[in-house]
Write a protein that binds this DNA or RNA. Structure first.
Lengths: 210, 210
DNA sequence: CCTACCGATCGGTAGG
DNA sequence: CCTACCGATCGGTAGG
């Protein structure tokens, strides 16, 4: 998984990086989709953002819808990869949970990738059923990561109750941060991650740490 | 506060309820805005939903934008009123917190009002600056309710850390439920509220309750 | 990748 | 509240 607009998704020569216009378009589209929404973003907006004329983006993407799909797929891939990497480094459930929250928020809020991530989260409703199913498959496999760790935490008595609802609430708390987080503000993604952990882990261990 | 489309916002005769078309339009607009988004919803969609021709909604609202504003204002008013009522009945911070979570989720997810509530939460970005400021004023006064109770919980040692971030995370967890909650599903708004409380309140009291 | 353009749709209006 | 319609915009295409 993971491509984030490096190269032709089709089998063209990957060596030729000379001005990756497809990637430029995707990044511009991601930014505009996040800022104004998919419907309110115009092909002309996107073209202007990469110094093209209005018809030219269609040389790289068949439709505007295809751009949304490409942004969404790259978006989940980025989140998925970041969280998998963070999770694999931590065998102990509680630390793994912390690392995953950290990684998810970072993927969601850091300057690179935040456009893609926000689009997955907020604009997927505009995909047609087939494309949506494709994205949903990726989302499902991502959520399994969370379910596994949450179930372990429940088994250890660290969390209680319905882990299905808990997962949705946790991801919601994080995903919603795309609505209020401002890059330059006084709270960093790390601050947010720490506070979320403090909120849901009673964490005797940390309190009584030697 | 609170009107939820009963009657003319202007000073017309409130007695004459004979076919409240303005309210019909607002409810239809709210539903469509939530389902398809503001931009993707057409005046013609709204008109069709209330059996009018495409030009007629403009007899009741000057612009589509004004419909969004009206829906948004009614939306926050409904949430605000519900949470105030719930909070006033509970002097003890912990029970008040539970009641507020319950009330917020119920306002957000119950069949009446969920369209309005979801629109406040998701579509306000399409308001122009002046209208947005108007809505923001209402939102601010709503968030004060939460800040007060969260600060009390922090003072009592029940919650820890940055209550500003905590408030945003909590409201995020709840507001996000508009994306995944399905009215007929196996989890009720009450289930969600209970689970959220269990997640963030360690709640010795309940565990050891006689 | 640009020029030139089409067909459809959309918010909104006039006039009743 | 309807009929009829306008001006603008938009996604997309042809032809180079």
């Amino acid at each position: 998984m993971g491509s984030l607009t490096e190269a032709p998704a089709t089998g063209a020569s990957p060596a030729e990086d000379a001005g990756n216009r497809r990637g430029d378009i995707l990044r511009a589209a991601g930014k505009l989709f996040r800022e104004k929404g998919y419907k309110a973003t115009t092909i002309r907006d996107i073209a202007a953002a990469v110094n093209m004329r209005s018809g030219s983006p269609f040389y790289h993407f068949k439709t505007k819808h295809d751009m949304l799909l490409a942004v969404a797929i790259d978006g989940i891939a980025a989140i998925h990869d970041a969280v998998v990497a963070a999770a694999q480094a931590e065998p102990e459930p509680r630390s793994r949970f912390r690392a995953m929250i950290h990684a998810h928020l970072d993927a969601l809020l850091n300057p690179e990738g935040r456009d893609f991530a926000a689009v997955v989260i907020r604009e997927c409703g505009f995909l047609d059923p087939e494309a949506w199913a494709q994205v949903q498959t990726h989302k499902d496999s991502y959520e399994v990561l969370w379910s596994r760790t949450l179930d372990e935490l429940a088994a250890a008595g660290i969390l209680k109750g319905d882990m299905h609802i808990t997962r949705l609430l946790l991801l919601g708390a994080m995903n919603w941060s795309t609505h209020w987080y401002h890059p330059g503000g006084s709270r960093s993604p790390e601050d947010i991650a720490r506070q979320l952990c403090a909120l849901v882990l009673s964490d005797e261990k940390a309190r009584y740490k030697k």
